Amino acid sequence: MELHAVTNDSLPAEELIKQIIAIASEVDFIHIRERSKTASELVDLVKSLLLEGVPKEKLIINDRVDVALLTNIHRVHLPGHSFSPKELREKFPHLHAGVSVHSIEEGKAAEKNGAEYVIFGHVYDTTCKPGLQARGVQLVKELTSLLSIPVVAIGGVTPERVPELRHVNVKGIAVMSGIFTHHQPRKMAQAFSKQVKENPYEEAL
């Protein structure tokens, strides 16, 4: 399974850079999802991360295709209401794109429109989505069985819930506040990574 860390747009750039550097070796992908920052600030942020040795291949730019192009990052993640990945790759064939979805219908549409993977949520109750009912693991299972592209689960995921998600065939998990609001983000990233990298076949022996 993959571990995706998603920034939560709550930290100043300097602090965010420190946190990303701290967790970079523990996660597979880092989504830069900073909606309140300007394009210029995001470009500077990405350039700083690259200078600090964060692998380019691990960075995914959320929504801001312009920032990805300016910093030569090849992975973007699009909101469900954005343009289609198919249109994007017609103009920029080198870009890889995933899409956020919140229902079976949206998942099917994203696959049809050329998404290489979807992030589906929120799976469990989470403080990030107060008052909104969690979609539940059963719906994740249904989605993974219907789509031929990978599904990544997000929303209220804890290290203890990873085995349950593994059993419904998700490609990975995405964690936002579980890492970036913790006072020890690297420690939490390690806890998630340990569960994600567990070999289920070993457990069964």
Rank of each mutant, 00 (worst) to 15 (best):
G107D: 04
L59W: 02
V157C: 10
F29E: 06
L147K: 12
L51V: 05
P159D: 00
P185A: 05
E52R: 13
I149T: 07
A22G: 15
V175Y: 01
V27H: 10
I60V: 15
A153K: 02
H183I: 09
L51N: 07
V140Q: 01
V152N: 01
Q133D: 04
I149Y: 02
T181K: 15
L88V: 09
G114E: 08
H94I: 13
R161M: 00
A189K: 06
H94L: 15
K197I: 01
R186A: 14
T71Y: 01
V140N: 05
V76R: 02
L11A: 14
E160V: 00
P85Y: 00
M188V: 00
H31R: 05
P85W: 02
V6Q: 06
H182P: 07
R89V: 13
Q19K: 14
S10N: 08
K129F: 11
N72Q: 13
V175P: 03
K86V: 10
K18S: 11
I73F: 05
A134E: 00
V196A: 09
P85L: 05
P130W: 07
N169H: 11
N113K: 07
A109N: 06
I119S: 09
D66Y: 11
H102Y: 09
L147T: 08
P79E: 10
N169A: 08
E198P: 07
K194A: 15
V162K: 01
E26Y: 09
V170M: 10
K171V: 00
E164P: 01
L165I: 01
D28W: 07
E160N: 00
N72K: 15
